[in-house]
Write a protein that binds this DNA or RNA. Structure first.
Length: 225
DNA sequence: ATGACGATTTACT
DNA sequence: GTAAATCGTCATA
């Protein structure tokens, strides 16, 4: 697996990790750990196995497209490592990690985790019957809204500073980004109406992970056929 | 004030 | 495969 089983104390990822190019951060986050401390002290954690990059005012699919700025997405203009949590479809939360700087409202959407600590407590947050087609563990955090349920991430955590918070932060499980040979790349999910941007290869996943939100389409080696 | 629309998930035919 | 659930946000009036 990606992480040695007895989890030793891992260093927290510094703000500088998130201050880089957004695609670089989206790739480098794969295999790192997202950690949540509940008010009662319970610690929940999962390895990040799927991300998407959202590239700001030019990106038709981004919430900051055309410099759109409002109370909802204000955290996108905060410093790197700020958490942007939004509410959608009347019932779901999704969480992003803000990148670069205040002049570039860009972020990485965290789309799936491999649970590594406190599976039982995570299951309490999820409101589903047992999956028949996947083991309970692989269905636990296999989607942006599922992982927010499992880790109890809501709008209350919007604007949290992941570099300093004791409620939500990132830990380093690996010093280098995964090798490209282990990263699957594809178009982002759920943005079909975003024109050219819908086809951009801005979704990244740990190749062959059973915890992904959806399989990655096979990459065509040739443009014909 | 009103209506359309989600960076989704679940259950079911 | 399709549809329902459910409501904050935003554009239009």
């Amino acid at each position: 697996m990606l992480l040695p089983e007895p989890t030793l104390p891992l260093p927290r990822l510094p703000r500088s990790f998130c201050q880089r190019d957004t695609v670089t951060v989206a790739r480098a986050l794969l295999g790192q750990v997202l950690v949540r401390r509940l008010p009662d002290g319970t610690r929940l954690a999962g390895l990040i196995v799927e991300t998407e990059a959202y590239l700001g005012p030019e990106d038709r699919a981004a919430h900051t497209y055309n410099h759109h700025r409002s109370e909802r997405n204000e955290s996108m203009w905060q410093q790197a490592a700020t958490c942007y949590v939004y509410f959608t479809y009347g019932m779901h939360h999704c969480m992003n990690i803000v990148t670069r700087d205040e002049q570039h409202p860009q972020a990485v959407l965290v789309r799936a985790l491999q649970p590594v600590e406190n599976h039982e407590a995570m299951r309490l947050g999820r409101q589903t019957k047992r999956s028949k087609t996947r083991s309970p563990d692989t269905a636990l955090c296999s989607g942006p809204a599922k992982l927010c349920q499992a880790l109890a991430i809501t709008r209350e955590l919007d604007r949290t500073d992941l570099a300093t918070s004791d409620a939500l932060w990132l830990e380093q499980a690996r010093g280098r980004a995964l090798p490209r040979s282990r990263i699957a790349v594809g178009p982002r999910i759920g943005i079909a109406r975003s024109g050219d941007w819908a086809d951009q290869p801005l979704r990244f996943g740990v190749k062959d992970s059973p915890h992904l939100s959806k399989p990655f389409p096979a990459r065509r080696r040739f443009t014909n056929l």
